[in-house]
Design a binder for these strands. Structure first.
Lengths: 245, 245
DNA sequence: CAACCGCCTTGACCGAGGTCAATGGCCGCT
DNA sequence: AGCGGCCATTGACCTCGGTCAAGGCGGTTG
């Protein structure tokens, strides 16, 4: 994973103390000693939008935390049908200790910066970093819950419910990140194109588009350009999701 | 979780040495000391087919390994639409250390026997059982992979592909468990009713039924009663799955 | 042995969402 | 300004799988 031949990537080393995901990533519970250990094996890499970060079946040499940007985890069939099985956002962890191949394709959506650890040294250090392994188990359990919630969406929700669920997911996140909440409503930037959303939601691009216009005509959202959505009434949109949030 | 008031459950204590899942469950890497620790907090419980083992939102007081039988993990919407998000088979682990509520409904499909651990003592013991925590992380990562594979099935596969995938899943498992492989083909017992399969595959019961007859008419399977399937040509059925197995 | 019940199958119909194709905006480039 | 590329939207049509409804089959009960 993490192809070394790519021209566009930069390698820098940053202080953990100024890291934007210091308090949420796999290292969030690490003490000073543990951070010092991590520091000995970590390095940064940057990927451009659309760039492949890793392919299913590749040798798994590097584990990483997302520092900035958005990436996708996806799974494909031979005929090209593909399903995004996870969104990777800042603080999310990529790769699995104890495995030697990559399980899913990883692709950069925006520009992505990773904080990387070579796998073998990281695994060896894990026994000396109990807070890191505990945090990793915790994050993996969270990912598992998220994956299972998404299974309900993929298997049972209608197109409209899928779009509403997705918008609320992004809205919740961007509110947490401290974005625009005005009297006009909540203003959110979509990190994904229509096509990527479709791949995430198990829909086609046309259906995504049609549902956006349907929600707009029903007054549940308004669009400012193609990537900015204003949600005037959060509760009204929540009612479209189908389940109890 | 694990309702204590139910009449039909039995509580026994068994020797780990004769446990059928000793080499695959969360305790599989435990040494003698660790097993002795587990022994101090473990007890058995049995549930009848259809019985609820735990409900989403319940206080999570007990963690458990499935010893025998089949159970489902499921997620429901207010209007009753439900999706099975995981199958629990012998050696699978239920519950998550570090959480205090149940995340998904757990239901017995067949008679189920669990090897239970009270959560708090188990969590406290975890620090003294490194092999158990490592194994738990490993199993959780496997579950996550399985969940993500299932997302591809739910989001992108046709009804026929879903059924074929499911049959191969069960076939693979029953071959591993050492079941009937004759010159007539592989004989498999379905652990689930049509309805439960439908809930697992994101289909309706009618569609499941129709696809079974379609596969039968195409000579890919033959049915012996309603719960026994014979697969004469494993490779031919594999071709119906759509992806590279 | 008839009545019943749970589960499965089959048929007729319908509709949500996929497919195919044309059109429209936005932006950078010359 | 004009052109071309990319992405999004819209429309017309079709199909897969859902819905509704009617049996069928096997096992159990009186």
């Amino acid at each position: 994973m993490l192809d070394d031949d790519v021209k566009s990537l930069s390698k820098t080393h940053q202080r953990c103390s100024s890291c934007p995901v210091r308090h949420r990533a796999v290292c969030s519970k690490a003490n000073a000693d543990e951070l010092a250990l991590l520091d000995t094996v970590k390095f940064y890499k940057t990927y451009q939008p659309g760039q492949t970060i890793a392919l299913r079946g590749d040798a798994l040499e590097v584990l990483a935390s997302v520092v900035t940007g958005t990436a996708t985890l996806s799974q494909s069939m031979e005929d090209g049908r593909t399903q995004i099985v996870g969104l990777l956002l800042p603080s999310d962890f990529i790769g699995r200790p104890g495995r030697d191949t990559v399980a899913h394709d990883v692709t950069a959506v925006t520009e992505v910066t990773l904080c990387c650890f070579r796998r073998i040294p990281f695994e060896n250090l894990m026994v000396d970093m109990p807070h890191v392994s505990v945090r990793l188990l915790e994050m993996t359990l969270d990912d598992l819950d998220a994956a299972r919630d998404w299974m309900l969406l993929l298997g049972r929700k209608t197109a409209r419910e899928k779009i509403a669920s997705f918008l609320l997911l992004i809205a919740n996140r961007s509110v947490m990140a401290g974005s625009d909440v005005t009297t006009q409503g909540i203003r959110i930037e979509l990190p994904l194109s229509r096509e990527t959303m479709a791949t995430y939601l198990g829909l086609t691009i046309e259906t995504v588009s049609r549902q956006f216009t349907a929600l707009r005509k029903d007054g549940l959202i308004s669009l400012d350009g193609t990537r900015t959505v204003v949600v005037p009434n959060f509760t009204a949109l929540s009612a479209e999701v189908g389940d109890g949030e």
